[in-house]
Amino acid sequence: MEKVLRVFAGLASGDPRERLRAIWLTVGVPAVAIAAFLWVWAESAARVQTSLGAVPGPVQVLSQARSLLEDHVAERAKQAEFYRRQEARNEQRLAEDPKAEVTIHKWTGKPTFVDQILTSLKTVFTGFLFATLVAVPLGILCGSSRVVQSALNPMIQVFRPVSPLAWLPIVTLIVSALYVTSDGALFEKSFLVSAITVTLCSLWPTLINTAVGVTSIERDLINVSRVLQLAWATKVRKIVVPSALPYIFTGMRLSLGVGWMVLIAAEMLAQNPGLGKFVWDEFQNGSQESLSRIMVAVLAIGIIGFLLDRLMLGLQHLATRG
């Protein structure tokens, strides 16, 4: 962080040499590194022959990304056509029988790559939201009470390292048993399974960080609250949460990162819609374009993961400054 600040200071400084150096560091070096990476990729990819042909280089991957986007646009056009057909059908029905009950059915086409990205984002945020709602209060309890802490600590330590792949079958079975879907259900079962798996795996960093944040509140502040005889709720609201906020946000940032990684694995294994399923479907298709499409997905997963992290960082700055 400090280094970054120094670079920015350089950019603002009057010394032209400093400024040049700063520009070189912020723009030049990454650009050269990325170019080198692309070159190594392009050179080495063609040399590796898989049973699906040579490993695709950057050019093939880029063209595949474009075709996935075109595919998305084409699919949207088909979707609009589908709704027009239904409206025409319904009008005809109403003309035949004005009392007929007409419905508009949801689009029945395939989810495009963009749809799958959106599904994944929706799922990860749902899971992350559940995780935060559970982890922050629990973390505050753990941090403020020795008793709660020693009660929960063993369980936290045991469940924390469990991989999503182990949770998944359990979550699938429990959700299937408890959540009986009907036609108008709010959530798809598969959506809940992935979201809950994300929750179970991304809970821990927030929980632990919150607890640590709460325990490391300055004694002075606690003493002040004692002197003022603040009610417990007021103490939490006015003193505990504000002072632990940086820790909580660091935890949440870690949690979201873990959640994103977990989600892709969960979708892949459970065939839940989303980017993970896209990757697995392409692997199963085994066409000559499959590898390039999988690489597009890998890059998309990486870039989205990076953006999510930046988003949380931004929120953290906002929250701690305000």
């Binding site: 479907d281 392409e282 298709n285 085994g286 066409s287 000559q288 374009e289 499959s290 499409r293």
Partner: peptide
């Protein structure tokens, strides 16, 4: 069949 949402293998196959 060779569309990726269906069978997805190459047309030639």
């Amino acid at each position: 069949f060779s569309k990726r949402e269906y069978i997805g293998a190459d047309y030639e196959v």
